[in-house]
């Protein structure tokens, strides 16, 4: 069955589109809404000064901080998000829907609200923060706070991408692995996660991108101290009036990073998924 299945997508007959032609009008308008601002940004870049603008002390400090904090928060997202997604997808427990809804919240909450919440949980007078302060640990307005804020807003992206993939994949292969003698940990790492790898990669990349762009929660919970909590988005916001050219230059850096990362990861994930659909029906 697999040997005769064409690997290329089935050709569609020209002149017989499967969607109404007029859909093109709102579709193009939608694409323009997203593309035009990016073009607008590019037209404002002072190309001559660009290298100097993105290597100023403030810009370099912000870029270095963003790189560091995004690396940490992405790692945290994976370490915490994978178990969370597996729990939600594989265990049946009372109140699971409630848990899922609450975990979804950061996706729809204004980030500034999340920042306030973080402050009242981990801040000096917060729920846990008070006890942490007694132990000599201060989180608010430190680099740790930046990482927490980024993790808070980015976690749901991974959890929901992965949970959906786990549910769609089902438990058939896990059952096979179990009867072959594989314990739960071996099954999870060698079978389950390998099967949902594209979703794990896509979810991680989305989460990293979201962490990189985090602004509201960071500003509220971590403040804006150069080299400590002032990430690239905060630096852009600060420079926007003082030095618009610097803000635009940094913005362009973020745009390029975002496009490259999404293209690589999403392209890769889609290719893997397509290859699996094309060749893996029987497996």
């Amino acid at each position: 069955m697999t040997s005769t299945m064409p690997t290329a997508p089935a050709p569609t007959l020209e002149g017989t589109p499967f969607a109404p032609r007029w859909l093109a009008v709102p579709a193009i308008a939608g694409a323009a809404l997203i593309v035009l601002p990016l073009i607008g940004l590019a037209t404002r870049v002072e190309w001559a000064q660009f290298p100097a603008l993105v290597t100023s002390d403030a810009a370099l400090a912000a870029l270095a901080l963003s790189a560091r904090t995004v690396a940490w928060s992405t790692a945290l997202v994976v370490i915490l998000g994978v178990p969370l997604a597996v729990m939600l997808a594989r265990l049946e427990f009372r109140g699971m829907d409630v848990v899922r809804t609450v975990i979804l919240a950061p996706l729809v909450l204004p980030p500034v609200v999340g920042g306030l919440g973080l402050l009242y949980a981990f801040g000096r007078t917060g729920l846990i923060g008070e006890r942490l302060t007694l132990l000599g640990i201060d989180i608010a307005f430190t680099t740790t706070a930046v990482v927490l804020a980024q993790t808070f807003v980015a976690l749901p992206f991974l959890v929901f991408s992965l949970e959906g993939a786990l549910r769609a994949d089902g438990t058939r292969f896990e059952a096979v692995a179990a009867t072959l003698g594989a314990g739960p940990w071996t099954t999870l790492t060698r079978v389950t996660l390998r099967r949902v790898w594209p979703a794990l990669v896509a979810g991680t990349v989305l989460a990293a991108a979201r962490a990189l762009g985090e602004f509201g929660a960071t500003l509220t919970f971590a403040g804006s101290l150069q080299g400590v909590t002032r990430t690239v988005p905060l630096e852009i916001y600060l420079q926007r009036e003082a030095d618009a050219d610097a803000a635009v230059a940094l913005s362009l850096v973020l745009v390029v990073v975002a496009l490259v990362v999404v293209a690589l990861a999403y392209g890769g994930a889609t290719r893997v998924a397509r290859a699996r659909v094309a060749s893996g029906r029987s497996s």
């Binding site: 058939r172 096979v176 390998r194 099967r195 893996g280």
Partner: peptide, 30 residues
């Protein structure tokens, strides 16, 4: 996974992303 019993179903359910050899080696590895 602790029962010395193995089930083969009508669907071979080979693990994708592994060679045939590693599929067969899966049990001994586990």
């Amino acid at each position: 996974h602790r029962r010395p019993v193995t089930l083969l179903t009508q669907d071979p359910s080979l693990f994708a992303g592994m060679s045939v050899l590693d599929n067969v080696a899966f049990g001994p590895r586990a």
